[in-house]
Nucleic acid binder design. Structure first.
Lengths: 183, 183
DNA sequence: CAGACTTTTCAGAAATTTCTGAAATTATTC
DNA sequence: GAATAATTTCAGAAATTTCTGAAAAGTCTG
């Protein structure tokens, strides 16, 4: 252990929030530790710092790798794996959003399409509701895909200017797409 | 039970996805059931349909109410509570995003501000990293607040037009705000 | 205000998730 | 290819979350 209070509290907070973010406490703590660490850390260092078992560290890192939230680094003459988080926070955010979409939205979109493929089966309301939900998810993910395409600089512009976009949008005369029943 | 296959599979899917969405299986299933149901349902109907205990239903509904994801309805001459989901899917989405922000982002923003208030404490890199994270979250939530303000119609326009926004943005000559170190 | 109806609470049971230590696997060096 | 180093796997322990049944609390009716 032996953390500065800042590190200590930041790491504990990430541990506590972990469950709300869909990761467990250990994974949250490992991420927080790496995030604050200027230099990459290896599994043993993480294990020692967080006072957890080596195997838990291994699983946590595997989880973070599956989320693409950590990067692997190596040093000459040392064959251990070292881990860092990307310097660019916007990059981190993009990866995070992409991964959450993959885990939380995509499976449902796939399932909704499957359900629709079955065709009418006796409950018009439910079928309409499912179709509408599928459409909304598609519209949202299309929007997301557009944002995803933007390089960081333009995206930052978009986000930071926020309010102006809305006003500007107001001038757009395009008719409201009909696919949205209740706009 | 006795569901149509469509209902059955939709409800089971929501139950399975529940844990990824930060709710439990029962809550996911109750929501799915209400979502597909044209008419409001009371707790006993939900209990019976989902084959769960009455108390579990009660807790699940409480949870959904805390998320503002269900609406209460009453019928004359019947003093039981009936529950529905809003008809407007965009409204549902807005509520969902607002609630997730409240649970997943706001506590961290608050904590980061607290940590910064302490002032320098011996690790410049960690302090800069935390400040940068706090800034990014602020920029994102400001953007979110702007979107939140838009009435549904304009928001739908914004989302459905997606790509055009990006192109339009390109013309904006505004200098990149300096608060973002690595744009 | 007694009795019926409805909802909530809560302690413990059941289920699930997380964590650990030991063993197995993989990779590297001599 | 034996010895060493690093990492992963995995069965069971520990911790946490979810669910239930019973009891309590609240609400309405006559």
């Amino acid at each position: 252990m032996t953390f500065l209070p800042l590190h200590q509290d930041f790491i504990l907070h990430f541990g506590e929030m972990g469950s709300r973010w869909g990761i467990n406490r250990t994974v949250g703590q490992i991420y927080a530790l790496l995030f604050l660490s200027k230099n990459p850390l290896n599994a043993d260092q993480i294990t020692e710092k967080l006072s957890i078992s080596r195997s838990n560290t291994s699983m946590g890192l595997k989880e973070l790798q599956s989320w693409n939230l950590v990067q692997l680094r190596h040093f000459p003459g040392d064959r251990r794996d070292y881990f860092t988080t990307p310097e660019d926070l916007w990059e981190i955010m993009r990866v995070l959003i992409a991964e959450r979409k993959k885990r939380e939205i995509d499976p449902t979109l796939t399932r909704l399409r499957e359900l629709e493929m079955r065709g009418p089966g006796g409950d018009d309301y439910a079928e309409a509701r499912i179709a509408e939900l599928r459409e909304l998810i598609e519209v949202m993910t299309n929007f997301y895909d557009e944002m995803e395409k933007l390089e960081t600089e333009r995206l930052v512009k978009l986000i930071t200017l926020g309010g102006r976009i809305a006003r500007r949008l107001d001038q757009t005369k395009t008719a409201l797409p009909t696919l949205l029943k209740r706009p």
